[in-house]
C-alpha cells in the first residue's frame, strides 16, 4: 500500500494558505495520524504526495481531507459523493471566494450568516466528517475570536463542539508549527469556547 507525506508550505497565519494547511492538519490528526508531515515545503500550496513517487500528489485541501477520510473509513468514493459532496462543492466554488475577500467586519458578518445557514440546511452535527472538518476550518480562519460567533447560535454550537474534539488542539499546533517552522504559541483567543 502506498504511503503519503503531507507537505505544508511556509505561510502567514492570516493567509488563505494557513486556512488550507489547517484543514489538512485536522484531517491528518483525525483520520491518518501516522502520516509524515513536512513543514516549509517547497510547494505553493498544501500537498499530499506519494512518498515513493513525487509525481503523484493531491494539492487541494478539500481533496486531501476527502482522500484521508476515504482511506481511513474504506467508504467508497461513490457513496461519499452522493452524501457529502454538495457541501464540498459549495465550499470550493461559492464560499472560498467570499472567505478570501472577507477582510472587513461587515463582510465577515455576511459570510458567518451564510455559514450559519449552511450548517442548518446541511444539518451538520459536530461529528468528524470531511464536510465538518472543512467548514470548521473555514470558521476558525474567518473569525478573530469566538465572541464573533455570539449572534449565530447554530454556528457557535457547531464550532464549540467540534473544537472540543481532542485532536483539534494538536491539529492547530501542527498547522502553526509547520507553516512557521517553529514551535506553536497558542493565545487564549484560540482556546475552544465552551457551550455555555
Amino acid at each position: 500500500m502506498a504511503t503519503f507525506k503531507l507537505q505544508i508550505p511556509a505561510v502567514s497565519k492570516e493567509s488563505f494558505g494557513f486556512h488550507e494547511a489547517l484543514k489538512a492538519a485536522i484531517a491528518v490528526s483525525a483520520f491518518a495520524p501516522k502520516t509524515k508531515v513536512e513543514g516549509a515545503a517547497p510547494c505553493n500550496s498544501v500537498r499530499l504526495t506519494d512518498a515513493k513517487d513525487a509525481s503523484k500528489y493531491i494539492s487541494d485541501a478539500n481533496a486531501i481531507v476527502s482522500y484521508l477520510y476515504w482511506k481511513n473509513t474504506n467508504l467508497t468514493a461513490e457513496k461519499f459523493l452522493s452524501v457529502e459532496h454538495k457541501l464540498l462543492d459549495w465550499d470550493s466554488l461559492n464560499l472560498s471566494p467570499l472567505l478570501i475577500a472577507a477582510d472587513a467586519p461587515e463582510k465577515r458578518q455576511i459570510v458567518l450568516t451564510l455559514l450559519d445557514n449552511a450548517i442548518q440546511n446541511f444539518k451538520l452535527d459536530a461529528s468528524v466528517t470531511p464536510a465538518n472538518v472543512i467548514i470548521f476550518a473555514d470558521v476558525y480562519s474567518l473569525i478573530n475570536g469566538p465572541e464573533e460567533l455570539e449572534p449565530f447560535e447554530t454556528l457557535k454550537s457547531f464550532y464549540s463542539k467540534f473544537a472540543a474534539h481532542p485532536f483539534f488542539q494538536k491539529s492547530l499546533n501542527l498547522a502553526i508549527e509547520k507553516t512557521k517552522g517553529q514551535t506553536a504559541e497558542i493565545s487564549s483567543e484560540q482556546i475552544p469556547i465552551s457551550e455555555e
Binding site: 493531491i58 476527502s66 482522500y67 476515504w70 466554488l93 472560498s96 471566494p97
Partner: peptide, 26 residues
C-alpha cells in the same frame, strides 16, 4: 462511465481536485 472517475481512491481524490479547480472562480 464510472471509469472516468478513476480506478482507486487516490485517483478519485485527484479527479475531485482538478474538477473543482476547473469550475473554481478563484
Amino acid at each position: 462511465n464510472a471509469a472516468l472517475l478513476g480506478s482507486n481512491e487516490f485517483e478519485k481524490a485527484q479527479i475531485l481536485e482538478w474538477t473543482t479547480k476547473v469550475f473554481s472562480p478563484i
